[in-house]
Design a protein around this nucleic acid. Structure first.
Lengths: 226, 226
DNA sequence: CCGGAATGTCGCAACCGTGTCGCAGACCTC
DNA sequence: GAGGTCTGCGACACGGTTGCGACATTCCGG
């Protein structure tokens, strides 16, 4: 249902929580540290982050602030019992809700659904999409592959957004010219081919064997598999 | 789209604004006084309140405080031109944003969307936000970098608040013109570029390699990292 | 009424992006 | 297998977008 990122250092808690959330219908990625969590966040296109406060290295507050600075994804914090001060600081550093450990899976699932419901419209999750290790974020106009940011030019980005907006569908050169280049050529032109080539060079691991943008000879281009 | 409550005593302004907001896709209820407004607020379940300061009987501040006490609904204030004191007091009494009269419908719509985009859930603890060594305090309208206060002019501050209010999101020049400068240009203008330049000069350690305000060529500007 | 700060306007320069061109290679048809 | 068409791809030069300094104007306090 929802793409969730779980950041929790305790191995057994992490595994069991991830499994439980999976049973509740979420698509869960998990990380044992803040650094790994931030990396996964960039690459997993999570719609919500469940974040433990006590982490080795970078602590939960810092992770929370960094995710906040990068976008508006909802964050649910895990805190130890009775750490009221943690709760307050957590909310101040940008968390949307918190759950006291030890957590009952159905409790945290309820919280997650509540937070997602609260911010359902216009939230970051909608504008962010992942295709394998390629993440396209329409809000921040950024593209990451395998967690690394890919520098995109305006035209390349518009082209990618147009193609990925209709995954699996073939778009003709004429259609792309009109929607991406905003002018309706009469004569044919190598413009689109060139654009696709430049785009492939940036997002395809092997431009000669494209994974994301397929050529459909005689018709145009298609984003994604059939 | 959003359920909005408009509290404004001037009859013609109230009617025309309500109509305009309706055309922008909002579901609007309106009230001519604070008392009536509070009653409607309870029964209309508004997601956002647009509130005039000058009201007969109970004034805007009082209404603002009462709504605040009842929940966390975002509040956008309408103030008369040049009443800077009103702006500060308004923000201090819990408003999320303000618009100077006379209002252009599309301007106030832009503000409304910005406030809603920011998200009600985060607003609770978001009067103060830190991004690295940059601290933005919405309550006291102050900015500090590395512990030192940065002297900001009104326009620079509005621009910074607008950008940092949607961290990680690209805002177009047009959007910024409407929400920060409050006028809807048709022709292009270097105004926004200039504002960003002046802002960078104050908050960026090296304006040539900006950390906080990124240029997204062809699209606009973005606050925060990727 | 005067002075200074803040803000909008203008113009220039640099850089990045992008359209065009040409050719080579791939693919389909016969 | 040969010819023709379609596509990939590198190179290059033009043009647009942005950064930025300078100047004009408005606004505000004294």
């Amino acid at each position: 249902m929802s793409r969730i990122l779980l950041i929790e250092d305790d191995h057994s808690v992490r595994i069991s929580l991830a499994k439980a959330l999976g049973r509740y219908g979420h698509d869960v990625a998990s990380a044992p540290s803040g650094e790994e969590g931030l990396r996964l966040y960039r690459e997993h296109a999570a719609e919500l982050v469940v974040l433990d406060l006590m982490l080795p290295g970078m602590d939960g507050f810092e992770v929370c602030r960094r995710i906040r600075a990068a976008g508006t994804v909802p964050i649910v914090m895990l805190t130890a019992r009775g750490d009221d001060i943690d709760v307050v600081s957590g909310l101040e550093s940008g968390a949307d809700d918190y759950v006291v450990k030890p957590v009952e899976p159905r409790v945290i699932d309820a919280r997650i659904r509540a937070v997602l419901r609260r911010g359902a419209p216009d939230r970051a999750g909608r504008s962010r999409a992942a295709y394998g290790d390629l993440v396209i974020d329409r809000a921040s106009m950024t593209v990451t592959r395998d967690g690394d940011a890919v520098a995109m030019t305006p035209t390349e980005l518009r082209l990618l957004l147009e193609l990925s907006g209709s995954p699996g569908q073939v778009l003709s050169r004429q259609q792309l010219l009109e929607s991406v280049w905003e002018h309706s050529y009469l004569g044919d032109s190598r413009l689109v081919d060139n654009g696709v080539q430049r785009l492939r060079a940036k997002i395809e691991a092997d431009p000669a064997a494209p994974v994301f943008i397929q050529t459909v000879r005689g018709f145009g281009y298609r984003f994604g598999p059939v």
